[in-house]
């Protein structure tokens, strides 16, 4: 299904819908920047999105996420599916710059017309990152990619935020980490729809998988979906067909159990909340001007408590 676009961002949206990769790349930069132009693009392209299966891939640094994404792309390409990737790496907190290296493992797909890979730096804030990846996914979805993979480094809150954007979240573990119950972060257990125990060429892989299984059985008593644990050797592509199958089964489960609708509602609610919070704050900030900094100073000097200061700012009449 193709969509015509009302409105006009230099016809960027229309070119994107027509399959122009340059236009998609440009549009991604604009939504990443988060300015008005990016918001306008999302508004124009939103009606054309909603068809892709969005898959989050997360886990500790170096567990083989990018290599696994590479192998999954190969698998889905052999079935003729079009695949989009958003690979997120952290920005340097000192310079604001970044070295984004996930593409190194995905080189074999660079020239494939059915694959689009985009590297993204986490830049400023957490809220900013999930907004940027969420909007990037919307654009790739509108551009007609059937599957969209979002790779993030497992570092606390960020993967939880991004998991909300995904329909299926794959958590990548490796042998030697997973056998230690303490090592599996509680947050990761909760967001995982599928576990990949990668680097299964390592002798302890079986133990890791068993350890995970036990933990899951203890934690998830009444859940409808029991996260499968798949052993993979990403570098050789082994187990990747099983992993893809588990991901597909999860998608079917979501659709048949009614959870897909539920997740989409949750996602919509989160998105609206995020946009409203940002906009309301921006509007208030504009309205009160320097009074904001003055309030901050008063609180810092302990002359006023933050609740009273907030109430005063909120109740300040329009000037």
């Amino acid at each position: 299904m193709r969509w015509a676009v009302v409105g006009n961002s230099d016809n960027l949206a229309q070119r994107l819908l027509n399959g122009d990769k340059r236009a998609l790349a440009r549009a991604l930069s604009k939504v990443e920047r988060g300015a008005m132009e990016g918001q306008q693009l999302v508004a124009e392209l939103f009606p054309a999105s909603g068809n892709a299966h969005i898959i989050g891939v997360t886990g500790s640094p170096g567990t083989g996420k990018s290599t696994l994404v590479n192998a999954l792309i190969r698998h889905w390409r052999s079935q003729g599916k079009r695949v989009g990737v958003v690979a997120v790496d952290p920005s340097s907190p000192y310079s604001g710059g970044a070295v984004l290296g996930d593409r190194i493992r995905m080189s074999e797909h660079t020239n494939d017309a059915g694959v689009f890979i985009r590297s993204m730096a986490s830049r400023g804030t957490l809220g900013g990152l999930s907004r940027a990846t969420g909007d990037a996914v919307t654009l790739l979805d509108a551009a007609g990619y059937d599957l969209i993979l979002v790779e993030t480094v497992g570092a606390g809150q960020s993967e939880v935020e991004i998991a909300k954007e995904a329909q299926t979240t794959v958590v990548v573990e490796v042998p030697g980490l997973g056998d230690d119950v303490q090592a599996i972060k509680a947050g990761l257990m909760e967001i995982a729809d599928v576990f990949a125990v990668n680097k299964a060429d390592h002798p302890r892989a079986q133990q890791t998988a068993l350890g995970l299984r036990m933990m899951l059985d203890i934690a998830n008593h009444a859940y409808l979906w029991k996260p499968p644990i798949v052993k993979t050797i990403a570098t050789r592509g082994e187990g990747v067909d099983k992993l893809a199958e588990a991901i597909e089964q999860h998608r079917q489960f979501l659709a048949e159990s009614g959870q897909l609708a539920q997740r989409q509602r949750k996602r919509a609610s989160d998105e609206l909340f995020r946009v409203l919070r940002r906009e309301l704050f921006r509007q208030l900030r504009e309205r009160v001007g320097d009074d904001y900094e003055a309030a901050v100073a008063r609180i810092a000097a302990r002359e006023q408590d933050p609740y009273s200061a907030a109430r005063e700012l909120l109740e300040r009449p329009e000037s």
Partner: peptide, 26 residues
């Protein structure tokens, strides 16, 4: 990176086609 740029590092053995396609997508 330390000067504040975002660097997309592609690694070894890149053909001109790969380099230009990377620049385009990124």
């Amino acid at each position: 990176r330390d000067a504040g740029f975002e660097v997309i590092y592609t690694g070894l053995r890149q053909t001109p086609e790969m380099i230009v396609n990377t620049a385009l997508q990124e």
